[in-house]
């Protein structure tokens, strides 16, 4: 039996080597001093990290990505918090259908969503590309916001809300003074999870590019097509650091069980 466990342990180690190895390799190659990606690197240099800041498109698209992910997040919160609250708090006819609608953006293939939005949001509704990008990312984030907040509301005893009402608080006052403070960590986790989904998105953004408008992942894709220097590796390292920090905060706020539940 011990032996079988040892075999399993070895197998699992190999699985994790497969999962994390490439990410470690990419990190090493980012310090390559030469202009061709190599592993192991032939020296150590910050050169390609500096290069990120010299390529103007990286800076512009980074700003666009940040703006879209943060502002879209805000929009998704404004739309999503009331919806998550209504869906958790009340029973009413058509609740199942509404739940379905709010979750559907994760069910529809991203590339299909991107194309449909290009066709209608940009062409038919005639919104500027920047606005289309923002709208697309808001739609993308909404199900994550609603799901995480609804799951944190599912632990909330709504008698607490009634207690506040009976003590003289109005509905809105109750929400801000009693409900919101108690689901705060859920909301922050929702913001971070949605942010990562949006910031890393390719499927929708790839259709929403235009003169001077593009997101960082799309710019990275374009860059890879024409260059094979370690700049992308350097950006990758920065993105992984950002991911690790956000993931750490999410873990502190609500543990990682959100990811294992389905």
């Amino acid at each position: 039996m011990q032996e079988k466990n040892r075999g399993l342990a070895l197998f699992t180690s190999l699985v994790f080597l497969f999962l994390l190895g490439p990410l470690i390799i990419i990190s090493f190659t980012s310090f390559e001093p030469g202009s061709v990606l190599k592993f192991p690197p032939e020296g150590f240099s910050w050169r390609w990290y500096e290069n990120i800041f010299n390529v103007e498109m990286f800076m512009t698209t980074f700003k666009t990505s940040m703006f879209v992910s943060l502002f879209g997040n805000l929009l998704a919160l404004l739309l999503g918090i009331p919806a998550a609250y209504a869906l958790s708090r009340f029973d009413f006819r058509g609740k199942g259908i509404l739940n379905g609608i709010f979750i559907s953006p994760v069910l529809i293939p991203g590339i299909v969503m991107g194309f449909a939005m290009l066709k209608y949001v940009i062409v038919v509704y005639n919104l500027p590309i920047y606005a289309g990008l923002l709208v697309g990312h808001t739609v993308l984030m909404l199900p994550f916001i609603i799901r995480v907040i609804a799951s944190s509301l599912s632990n909330f005893d709504f008698a607490i809300e009634e207690a506040a009402l009976s003590l003289g608080a109005g509905r809105l006052e109750t929400f801000f003074k009693v409900v919101l403070p108690n689901i705060r960590s859920g909301i922050i986790a929702a913001i971070l999870i949605a942010f990562l989904e949006s910031f890393n998105n390719v499927d929708i953004s790839v259709f929403m590019t235009g003169p001077g408008v593009s997101t960082l992942p799309i710019q990275m894709l374009t860059y890879v097509e024409n260059n094979f220097d370690p700049t992308i590796a350097a950006i990758s390292v920065l993105l992984m650091i950002l991911t690790a920090i956000l993931m750490f905060i999410i873990e502190r706020l609500m543990g990682l069980s959100y990811f294992t539940k389905r």
Partner: peptide, 18 residues
């Protein structure tokens, strides 16, 4: 679990590029 979730949250561009 954290080590499995980390790649999941990492950009697909980064992961494919690796």
């Amino acid at each position: 679990l954290a080590l499995a979730i980390f790649p999941l949250l990492t950009s697909s561009v980064v992961r494919s590029f690796s």
